[in-house]
Simulated scan of single mutants.
Amino acid sequence: MILPDDSRLKPFIAQRRDQLTKSKARRSLGQIQGKVGEMPMTRGFQGALAAYYRANGAPGIIAELKGGSPFDAGFRTLVPYKALAEDFEAVGAAALSVAVERQSFRGSYSDLATVRGAVNLTLLAQDIIFDVYQILEARLAGADAVVLSAALLGPELAAFRERAASVALDALVQVHTPAEVELALKAGADFICVSNRDIHSFALTPGTCEALIPLIPADKVLVVAAGGLGTLEDRERLGAAGAKAVLMGTALMADSDPAGVLEQVLGIETEADAEAG
């Protein structure tokens, strides 16, 4: 794991390590592997996004559910995961993401399992992964895909991708710089998330997606755009740049009407819009 001295990720890693120690004490790696072996087949997160794009000719939205964010204030104190997941599915999200980190995102694998039981959409577990045990946790909770950071995993990225594949999870490799794009491609990634936000500094750099997406071979890799996105214009702009899906979280969850924001992003005209027009 690569962690610069000034990385703002350090407290999250420390807290996650503590959680993992407790989890491993309750259930060993061998025990969790046994349970994962009994799980039904995953639903194909990457395939669902590709199918949405083929059917609609526009990027699908991965709607992220989370209880907080270290980047933004104004989040709700209680997240109705089941109801929101059902609303996002009804509105037309292509897939869902569930943040499972507790310290700042106030999420858990229990929340992911709740969402899994509520909808038929494919699910992405949004975690800070640095231990293969976390991959198995995600699989056991009902995830169809996990996020792997090229910046965090470095030369271990290929091995983590292989471990995810071994339990039928799609690995969405997150990148923020040209060097990380190169690393992801060398590791064999065919599913890449280009983010405007750096994982270590938390800095948001608008335009990163548009700058990096052209570096990725469109015929071999399905690209997701993320980081500070939340409007119809964002979806259209990133679609024109080559993204096949767009991940949106804060723009949805910080609003009093998350499903309403998703409707706007998807360009769905509501009754109120029709009356106003």
Rank of each mutant, 00 (worst) to 15 (best):
73 A>K: 13
38 E>C: 02
17 R>A: 08
129 I>D: 11
233 E>R: 13
23 S>V: 01
75 F>W: 12
195 S>C: 06
22 K>V: 04
275 E>Q: 12
225 A>L: 09
261 V>K: 15
158 A>P: 06
148 L>A: 12
277 G>F: 08
248 M>R: 07
222 L>E: 09
39 M>Y: 04
225 A>V: 08
75 F>L: 08
109 Y>Q: 04
6 D>E: 14
150 A>L: 11
10 K>H: 15
11 P>Q: 06
189 A>W: 05
57 G>P: 06
70 P>I: 09
217 P>C: 09
33 Q>I: 07
277 G>A: 14
195 S>E: 06
227 G>Y: 08
67 G>A: 04
204 L>H: 05
13 I>Q: 08
68 G>P: 12
1 M>L: 14
231 T>N: 07
90 A>E: 09
56 N>K: 13
179 A>Y: 13
101 E>L: 05
68 G>H: 02
134 Q>K: 11
55 A>T: 00
275 E>S: 12
53 Y>Q: 03
257 D>G: 02
156 E>P: 03
43 R>A: 02
3 L>K: 03
7 S>R: 10
25 A>N: 09
276 A>F: 07
71 F>P: 00
185 L>I: 09
63 A>F: 11
179 A>P: 05
106 R>K: 15
208 T>M: 10
271 E>N: 15
257 D>Q: 05
14 A>S: 13
99 A>G: 12
221 V>P: 09
147 V>F: 09
236 E>G: 00
93 A>E: 02
120 N>W: 03
212 L>C: 12
276 A>E: 12
210 E>M: 09
222 L>V: 11
192 I>Y: 03
223 V>A: 04
212 L>K: 11
72 D>N: 12
14 A>L: 12
109 Y>L: 13
8 R>M: 05
196 N>K: 02
46 Q>N: 03
62 I>V: 15
148 L>K: 10
135 I>A: 05
242 G>N: 10
183 L>G: 01
52 Y>H: 13
6 D>Y: 04
122 T>R: 07
258 P>H: 11
205 T>K: 06
170 D>G: 07
118 A>Y: 09
73 A>P: 03
191 F>Q: 01
134 Q>A: 07
156 E>Q: 15
236 E>A: 14
79 V>H: 06
172 L>K: 10
64 E>N: 02
72 D>F: 04
52 Y>I: 00
246 V>R: 04
43 R>Q: 06
3 L>D: 04
239 G>N: 03
247 L>M: 09
256 S>E: 13
82 K>M: 10
106 R>N: 12
245 A>T: 11
228 G>A: 06
151 A>T: 01
52 Y>T: 00
176 H>Q: 14
243 A>H: 11
234 D>M: 08
47 G>L: 02
277 G>V: 11
84 L>T: 05
